[in-house]
Amino acid sequence: MIAALRKEMLLQWRTRAQFLAVFVFGATSLLLFSFAVGPNAEDLRKFSAGFLWLGLLLSSTLTLSESFHAEMENRALEGLLLLPADPRVLYYGKAIANWLQLTFLGIALVPVMVVLYDAGTTRIPMLILVVALGAAGLSAPGTLYAAMTAQVKSKQTLLPLLLFPLIVPALLASVKSTSLLILGDPMGSLGSWLSLLGAFDAIYWALCGLLYGRVVEE
């Protein structure tokens, strides 16, 4: 697992300029969403959590599909499988690396959201936890589907088509949790939403790890 993760981190470090490009894409998305609502500060604040996660979701499709570019370029993934490397180890290495990248991206987008929508919170550690759990919900199935679509010509279209319906429960829980942190939680329901998010994360990570071998092997 350490070997797989080290390789992924090294690949991400070498293509770090791309992280900046994806961040700019996400930030631009947040800016464009604000135009849809208009200048009403109350509305902007109300929808800020949803817009943050939509921005992260759209950015994630770029990150996830790009994470398999290096694997497919010279069939490097096939080379690793022939060593033989355990497909599950390769999956978790890549999924963890994608999760870290999406978590950093989400955290980087939060200040943009605060500035654009005036939607801050004092519960910063909790917000980071929500971003991390939500990013885990995106990266686990996202890595699996990115592997499935990596060799398809229209992968940029196919990946969101396959991924978005699957991650609706995790996305819903992430938006609701973030919204409760920004707008307040008078009913104390944050814990329930976080539990739901954590449960879906556990299901995604377990199931996708099992299925990855079937996806990458003939």
Partner: peptide, 28 residues
């Protein structure tokens, strides 16, 4: 078994040394 294929199984952004280190690490 080792296969030398038409595809070279290399990561373009890694150095020659790092590519071999990836193999060594995965082989243990």
């Amino acid at each position: 078994l080792a296969l030398l294929s038409h595809s070279n199984y290399l990561y373009e952004s890694l150095t020659a040394r790092e590519n071999l280190e990836v193999v060594a690490d995965h082989l243990g």
